[in-house]
Design a binder for these strands. Structure first.
Length: 677
RNA sequence: GGGCCCGUAGCUCAGCGGUUAGAGCAGGGGACUCAUAAUCCCUUGGUCGCAGGUUCGAUCCCUGCCGGGCCUACCA
């Protein structure tokens, strides 16, 4: 029996679980359930990741203590996971005594190994907020291309990289004040000293998927590894470093240590010896993570474990991101779906199955396509698998199952033999392959039922024995598949156990038919999905950007605007069609010296097509908040000479003028140059 | 700029140095009526991104190009 410790990446206590997170937790949960079903000793450990600047800031914004914030979020996370049948053996927190102690232990080991260096670091400091600023909390003008409103580390206009201290006119996004430059002593882990070890660990012995190993080789390991800054000066929400008062461990130092800290708690609760799990050649550690945190888990983390004498991971399983409908999840499109919203509308088994049918051992992104989602749930799960039980269990309710397994033309034996390939697929993380094999077996079983036509046998009183045999085959083929699917569909496994009075607890149950038993009353095991449920879920998730979300109820609007500006006279379509309105992107916006109301805008219609437009919106919009956004412009107006230059068109806005100007904007997805019809 | 990965039927994907390249869904036709309008049978559909090379033989290996995605460390 193998001894396996499995982790998923710790969810950050700054937000709720969404369907993107669930790719990982479901993938891990399925793998863990598979191991347990196979009889392995397997423990699934996770925890909330609770430290860092973002938590500190959020707690401040919500006027909560950090402890209260992370406690609330942990409860929410646990509920979400439970709702999807994700079963941890222990769910802890990085903000725990156990994690603190392991941090200290690893820190001491790193010191002892001479891997810690101390160096001065210059950083921006927000005096008003009283904190050093991480890069993403600073905005300013790019020193290379002068693009305004760029984050602290790099410019997304020209791609330049720089230090936030080099930004022109830096502004803290926390307080909108100008930060000052301060220096502080930081502590670094000199991981270059373990370069040789990392080369060997990442490139040999299959601890990583080949594409990950290649990526690391071509990206990090081909040059000296840079030191890793693991300390942050106060104020910081985290653990203070014992031998460096006033400094705290950076959140990414203690996050993976949370795996160990959480294991310590589990050991205490279950009277297990800690060393059996993290300091034993008998134990395999398996981490499941997303491709966004590769280097923490494949470079820094092995370094820490190696230095402190803990087990190294047997394997780091890395998955890609989730897209929805081929695009990034989007709040405004309603595809940023929270776990809790999903559960409000749909059965968690649907997502478990859908993800399983798409997940492979590679770190490819997977796409959630709603049409396919509905098709797979209805065709595979209900139409194929559950249907097997549905179409035979009722007949079998009268007769029970035969005492001996009838001749089924080798179907049971074939599916039993498939177990090997299915198990290998699960083991390697290629759940999609496992599902394909299972579905093919389901197809064969449905063909069998079709050929035997139990509904005809049922009408002939002399064929009761034959009917019982056919149902015995049908239900056993179904049960076999329920066993194979048990890691993915624990509820279906439980229901199958109840139907046949024999709980599914072991993979081996797929190898022997169940005979001579009574079949309980059949009840629906899984509902078909109605596409309208999916639509409702998307609608409930839609949260248009900014503040123009649809109100709960339709508000009453008075007629003042219409009175102020009555409808114009009726025109024909032809006249309307003469106006060529286009989507345009504001490429630049600047004050016009001497003008009271005008801003000078350069509008891009895609490619090199540009319009210069003077717009009377000064004082309502600031130039910097216009740059980059999409507007609608009248593009075929005769150019008009104005005092400050020629205007090639107009941008379209609502409002009665004065301070009331509301620029119109297309919904997300519109492209510059598209005509408005 | 550099790196990693991908490009196979309308869609999602299998496959793989060797007979006529597969599945599911979608489309077309038929059967059945036990089952959650489920199931079964038949069927339409592909110059395996493009161009070279290696080979007796390439969708599969190599090179180049085109197209797409992601990453590019003291942000996560």
């Amino acid at each position: 029996m193998r001894r396996i410790l499995v982790t998923s990446a710790l969810p950050y206590a700054n937000g709720h679980i969404h369907i993107g997170h669930l790719v990982e937790y479901l993938q891990t949960d399925i793998w863990v359930r598979f191991q347990k079903l196979r009889g392995q000793r397997c423990v699934y450990i996770c925890a909330d990741d609770t430290h860092g600047t973002a938590i500190m800031i959020r707690a401040r914004q919500e006027e909560l203590g950090e402890e209260e914030l992370i406690a609330r979020m942990k409860r929410a996370h646990i509920d979400d996971f439970a709702g999807f049948d994700i079963e941890f053996d222990h769910y802890g927190s990085t903000n725990s005594q156990a994690t603190r102690e392991v941090c200290e232990e690893i820190w001491t080991a790193l010191r002892k190994a001479g891997l810690i260096d101390e160096r001065e670091v210059t950083q921006l400091y927000d005096a008003q907020a009283g904190t050093f600023l991480a890069d993403r909390f600073v905005k300013g003008t790019c020193l290379k291309c002068n693009a305004p409103n760029q984050y602290g580390d790099s410019c997304d206009k020209c791609g330049a990289h720089y230090s936030p201290t080099d930004l022109i006119d830096p502004v803290s996004t926390l307080s909108n004040t100008k930060p000052e430059i301060r220096t502080a002593d930081h502590l670094f882990v000199n991981i270059e000293k373990l370069h040789g070890f990392l080369d060997q660990w990442t490139q040999g012995e299959k601890h990583l998927q080949p594409e990950v190993a290649n990526y690391l080789k071509g990206h990090f390991l081909c040059e000296p590894l840079r030191d890793w800054d693991v300390s942050r000066p106060a104020p910081y929400f985290g653990f203070e470093i014992p031998d460096s008062p006033g400094n705290y461990w950076y959140v990414w130092f203690d996050a993976p240590i949370g795996y160990i800290g959480s294991t310590v708690e589990w050991c205490q609760k279950h009277d297990e010896r800690f060393d059996d799990w993290w300091r034993s050649p008998e134990t395999e550690i398996h981490h499941f993570i997303g491709k966004d945190i590769i280097y923490f888990h494949t470079l820094f983390w092995p370094t820490m474990l190696k230095a402190a004498g803990f087990n190294l991971p047997e394997k780091v399983h890395i998955h890609g991101f989730l897209t929805v409908g081929g695009e990034k999840m989007s709040k405004s499109k309603g595809t940023f779906i929270l776990a809790s919203t999903f559960l409000d509308h749909l059965d968690p088994s649907y997502l478990r199955y859908y993800y399983a049918s798409k997940l492979t051992a590679r770190m490819d992104d997977i796409d959630l396509n709603f049409e396919e989602f509905v098709a797979k749930v209805n065709a595979d799960m209900v139409g194929n698998i559950v249907n097997l039980a549905s179409r035979t269990a009722r007949f079998a309710g009268q007769t029970g199952l035969s005492a001996e397994y009838p001749d089924d033309g080798g179907l049971f034996a074939k599916a039993a033999a498939d177990g090997q390939a299915i198990a290998e697929a699960y083991e390697s993380g290629d759940f999609a392959r496992a599902i394909r094999i299972i579905m093919a077996a389901g197809d064969r079983a449905n063909q069998y039922v079709e050929q035997q036509a139990p509904w005809k046998l049922a009408k002939d009183p002399t064929k009761t024995d034959r009917l019982r045999d056919v149902c015995t085959v049908g239900l056993n083929l179904f049960r076999q598949l329920a066993v194979y699917l048990a890691p993915v569909l624990p509820r279906l496994a439980r229901q199958t156990g109840e139907l046949l009075g024999d709980p599914i607890v072991s993979w081996d149950q797929s190898q022997t038919p169940l005979l001579g038993i009574v079949v309980n009353k059949f009840e629906h095991m899984m509902r078909r999905v109605d596409p309208r449920q999916v639509e409702a879920m998307v609608a409930a998730s839609a949260e248009p950007a900014e503040d123009d979300s649809p109100p709960e109820s339709i508000p009453f609007d008075n007629d003042a605007p219409l009175l102020a500006e009555p409808l114009a006279e009726t025109i024909g379509f032809d006249e309307f069609a003469k106006v060529d309105l286009r989507v345009a992107r504001v490429l630049s916006a600047e004050d016009v010296p001497g003008a009271k109301k005008l801003l000078k805008l350069t509008l891009g219609l895609g490619g090199d097509n540009r319009l210069n437009v003077f717009a009377g919106i000064k004082g309502v919009y600031k130039p910097e908040e216009l740059v980059g956004r999409l507007v609608i412009c009248a593009a075929n107006l005769t150019p008009r000479k104005m005092k400050f230059g020629t205007s090639d068109g107009m941008i379209v806005a609502a409002g009665g003028g004065g301070g009331e100007v509301y620029l119109l904007a297309p919904d997300h997805g519109a492209k510059p140059g598209q005509r408005v019809h």
